[in-house]
């Protein structure tokens, strides 16, 4: 049933991208398509440039060379259009901020509120269009945090915070979800919950792109695996990417390039 998603247009096109920090190359000639409507897991060692790739996809960092398109458009334009939702690896969140869990999730709607009636835009966000609240309720329910909705955000455990941030990303109703290690520091029950939520998102036609170090969940849930370490090592079905030889190649790819990238046709 989920096969109705048109496979023709990739969600993300990365074209010969080079990226560097202070002259230090981090990504070299990364050239890959990430399919729309599928769940891609990005796997690579620490320092491989996975978060950097996300920054480029979001358009908050410029590639030195090469181009990136998200659903056929420039990343920064798509970011403003609300096409992408992003969950950062290291949140820059001020946890002492006096804001409730519910209002935190509502901030995920701030982009959409640009389309609200004028008077709603000049009153405090709590009087926004009721449809935003409906989305917020749904998102909180999806991550099973509705009982915590009135808590201050700072009064949650680490795993609960992660779930709230996931709810905020869901509330954006974005077509592409970029999640940088959403499973780090999360217990198995929460992990299963998060995976279930993302699976639901994918089934409803969204594109899920997730960085993870957890091979098991990548094998279980992802449609595709992208092996990345400075360069693309491979891209294809989990069972063919997550094998010892490919993982060994990925580990070595930070220093040497002795294999052509193994990219399976989708």
């Amino acid at each position: 049933m989920s096969e109705v998603v048109h496979q023709s247009l990739p969600a993300v096109e990365v074209r010969h991208v080079y990226a560097a920090y202070d002259g230090q190359a981090v990504l070299e000639d990364v050239h890959i398509d990430l399919p729309a409507g599928e769940w891609t897991a990005i796997i690579g060692p620490n320092g491989a440039g996975k978060s950097t790739l996300f920054r480029i996809l979001l358009g908050v960092m410029k590639a030195q060379r090469g181009q990136v398109q998200v659903l056929g458009q420039e990343p920064s334009a798509q970011r403003r259009a609300g096409v992408m939702a992003y969950m950062a690896q290291q949140e820059a969140v001020e946890w002492d901020f006096p804001i409730s869990v519910r209002d935190t999730v509502l901030t995920g709607r701030y982009g959409h509120m640009r389309g609200d009636a004028f008077w709603r835009r000049i009153v405090p966000p709590r009087w926004c269009d009721p449809r935003h609240w409906a989305v917020v309720r749904q998102a909180l329910k999806a991550v099973d945090m509705q009982d915590y909705a009135d808590r201050p955000i700072g009064a949650l455990s680490g795993g609960q915070k992660k779930r709230v941030l996931l709810a905020r990303a869901l509330a954006q109703e974005a077509r592409v979800l970029l999640l940088d290690e959403p499973l780090a520091g999360v217990d198995t029950a929460s992990e299963r919950l998060i995976m279930k939520v993302l699976d639901g998102e994918r089934r409803s036609g969204r594109t899920v792109i997730m960085v993870t170090h957890d091979m098991d969940s990548a094998r279980r849930y992802a449609d595709k695996v992208l092996l990345l370490n400075r360069q693309v090592v491979g891209m294809g079905a989990p069972e063919r990417m997550l094998v010892d030889e490919m993982l060994a190649r990925t580990a070595a790819a930070g220093w040497v390039r002795d294999h052509e990238p193994l990219v399976e046709a989708s």
Partner: peptide, 9 residues
Amino acid sequence: FDPMQAQAL
């Protein structure tokens, strides 16, 4: 509250 999210939105 969250400058990175502000940028992402």
